[in-house]
Design a binder for these strands. Structure first.
Lengths: 113, 113
DNA sequence: ATTATATACCTCAATATCTTAGGCATATAT
DNA sequence: ATATATGCCTAAGATATTGAGGTATATAAT
């Protein structure tokens, strides 16, 4: 993943997290990083330095709840959507889609040849 | 334009500027703000506090050149793409498109019902 | 005449988000 | 024994944006 693409990610990370949890119901941080890589064939990667603060913020906002478990001798912190989180996932996803549609109106302009 | 959509704009502004100049060849700052509103039926707005620093940076990077003119008693600063700017417009646009396609892979996940 | 709005440029403090680099710890493969 | 994968985390610095402000001219409305 090049720096430009990484850069453009700004602001969409929380929507990505919410949407993944809508799909999976229950995920832990490391799993999220791997799932994003898997879904995008390695083209997108989210750094842990961005992910964990984002998760903590969403939890503080009341959109996520956590359960910690020990699996294979290692601690895992599972995140799930709260009611609010489910609603926010829907609304933020549709806002992001609307934004992308508008952005595409600009990107699809034909250059004056 | 709500705060979330505004928020998600982060990082795509320079691509928007480059692409608009690819379409129009020659635009001034205020015109860019109006054109974005017009193209998106008022749903997207770029603030001047973001636009002017972005224009200055692109100029400093050698992607834009400027010509200042007085029209109807008011000064206008016209921006155009340099050779480098044209190349960057193409490459950054395709990177943004690639990013959006990957993002859509995630947004189109079907929730586990 | 005065005021508001549109046009047109700009800066800057505060805020938010991200990158990069690091730390800590366990399990497994080499 | 060492490297890699798994798993959590923080923090300094860089960067982009918001939101508010400043300056100025032309025009429309009152």
């Amino acid at each position: 993943m090049n720096s430009t693409t990484q850069h453009i990610l700004k602001g969409s990370l929380s929507v990505i997290i919410l949407k993944l949890l809508e799909d999976r119901e229950r995920m832990y941080g490391y799993e999220i990083t791997q799932q994003v890589k898997a879904l995008t064939a390695g083209e997108m990667a989210i750094t842990e330095g961005a992910l964990y603060p984002a998760l903590h913020k969403l939890e503080a906002e009341g959109l996520l709840t956590t359960e910690t478990e020990v699996v294979d001798g290692r601690a895992r912190k599972y995140y799930s959507l709260t009611k609010d989180g489910q609603q926010q996932s829907v609304s933020r996803t549709s806002e992001l889609r609307a934004f992308m549609q508008n952005l595409n109106l600009i990107l699809n302009l034909k250059p004056a040849v």
